[in-house]
Design a protein around this nucleic acid. Sequence first.
DNA 1: CTTGACTCCGTACTATAGTACGGATGCTAT
DNA 2: ATAGCATCCGTACTATAGTACGGAGTCAAG
Lengths: 252, 252
Amino acid sequence: MPRSEVQALTIARAARQAGVGVETIRFYERRGLIEQPSKPSSSGFRVYSTEQIARIKFIRQTQQIGFSLHEIQELLSLRADPSADCSAVRVQAVAKLEDVRRKIEQLHRIGEALEALIAACPGHGEIEACTILDALSDAPRDAVPLLSLGERASRRKRGKTDMKRPNGHRLSDTKENDVKSVTLKIEGMNCDGCAETLQALLRRQAGVKSAAVTFGDRAACVLYDPGMIDEERLVTVIERPGFRVSNRSDGA
Amino acid sequence: MPRSEVQALTIARAARQAGVGVETIRFYERRGLIEQPSKPSSSGFRVYSTEQIARIKFIRQTQQIGFSLHEIQELLSLRADPSADCSAVRVQAVAKLEDVRRKIEQLHRIGEALEALIAACPGHGEIEACTILDALSDAPRDAVPLLSLGERASRRKRGKTDMKRPNGHRLSDTKENDVKSVTLKIEGMNCDGCAETLQALLRRQAGVKSAAVTFGDRAACVLYDPGMIDEERLVTVIERPGFRVSNRSDGA
DNA sequence: CTTGACTCCGTACTATAGTACGGATGCTAT
DNA sequence: ATAGCATCCGTACTATAGTACGGAGTCAAG
């Protein structure tokens, strides 16, 4: 038995690697969050695999962001298994994703409030936003000018009311000077800020007449001059920072 | 006493508005999270203001994202008060902001994993990423510690191998054909994804030779041709999607 | 072959964050 | 004025998520 170099990952070593206590691992086991690792042949000791360590770390990290062990258990048991009932899993996953997004939104808000607080901190002049709550309530965030490219961009907060007109035919107005429109489904956006940044990115492209990216729909609606830019190029632009375009059916 | 229209916000009404139980409000009071509202003159009953309702809602929401009541108390008592000791507050606020960022990162990771799971779900073909853990480990974003100046991240696929050279002096190479470099401190980024998107946005600008935006440093390092674009313009580009540039000292 | 560190298991204790109870008092509408 | 609520306060209970304890067995080195 070559155990000289790397000793088997018994519970204490596993716990140290995962950053938890031994008792915690046993507790998770009892809760059914991790299955009891096989105790191979001799020695009735648990021996852990790196996957199990990763699982424990995941549990810990996910707890840190406000999920209960019960919820984590649900997360862990989601499987995109074609043999299992997929739609039920999908429903759960979508619900959890919404949870995650809500949390991200809240964190963004707090993050910005903290930034405001930090920025206000060493100021010698007058200060208005003195506490996080002040900073938060000041945060309808319309303070940023923007206004240059025609459309206003719906800043954080809701205010959907933005472009839209799901399938309306206002593009016929602009048809003569050769415009195409396309709606691209975009994956990988997890916050409103990303959507806005992507929108600005698209609008900078030569040939793009207008672009509206909404986080809620996970979609980008782009009006462009097909003589100057094409859909392939748009997709490339979108995917460069790490998003994915999951559809390509254009609607014009 | 005009109480006909809007009745005073006594504890039960306040609780309903804040979405908590009456006992919870009293509990927060005892914990010192909210001060006991004055019971004005007659009637020894608590009467709440809308600010206090907001405070309670904040407590709730902040709990949802994994902060303990103790931490929330710290958050709430941070004040950018010039009379108070500012540096101590600053240190705390910065620490909390880091917390917030870490949580956002984790949420982004989980969000992406869930998206992958949902995407894999109704597929009829082969499936590799069957569980969140699979989906997470496919995105090996664990290697964060070093090389913060790069744009590691690099979502799915996409080889890094990009430009880079942390602090190397390759800009002297390109010096002769008129290049300036500037490092801009950027506020308003709360996630890695935003940084990447902003980076892509900058790189698309005519006149920008190279751009590296790091979330960790909250900074953008840009090499540009001053004959084609200037710092003012860069700042405009960055601020359009909602970021703020907090410095302008260039370093070339 | 003994010693000390590690493991097993079950049970018991702790901290956090509420939630419920219950008797006394207050408000207000019939 | 009195029934029927809401409110007051303190205390007690609950659920979640560990953490600690203790006795017994296991392993590896001195």
